[in-house]
């Protein structure tokens, strides 16, 4: 029950101040182990992962999302700023609905 975060040391430190439990991971292997453990242990909670972790585990994260099982995922930005171009939720919706808004330069 509750929240859990997986990310790099500095981001996790911040969320520790809000009383979250957290796993500090550096490599994709560590991240995968922590992600699997978090899914197994944190039933009915919210699992926060950083963008870096999402990039490391793209397949596992997508698979978990589509399984529609708790814990529910939310991706948070790393404390060191955004990691390049990402597909936002809005874009996901536009893509699914079939609208694409093209910016007129």
């Amino acid at each position: 029950m509750g929240f859990h975060i997986i990310g790099d040391a500095d981001t996790v430190l911040g969320y520790r101040f809000a009383g979250l439990s957290g796993d500090v991971v550096e490599t994709a292997e560590e991240a995968r182990v922590a992600f699997k453990a978090a899914i197994a242990n944190h039933r009915k909670g919210v699992l926060l992962i950083t963008e870096a972790v999402e990039d490391m585990l793209a397949d596992d994260v997508t698979a978990h999302r589509l399984s529609s099982k708790p814990p529910y995922l939310a991706v948070m930005q790393d404390i060191w700023g955004p990691r390049g171009k990402r597909r936002s939720l809005q874009e996901l919706i536009y893509e699914a609905v079939g609208i694409r808004i093209v910016q007129d330069n």
Partner: peptide, 8 residues
């Protein structure tokens, strides 16, 4: 988290 799950 709620919105992300729902949208996906």
């Amino acid at each position: 988290a709620e919105l992300e799950t729902a949208v996906w």
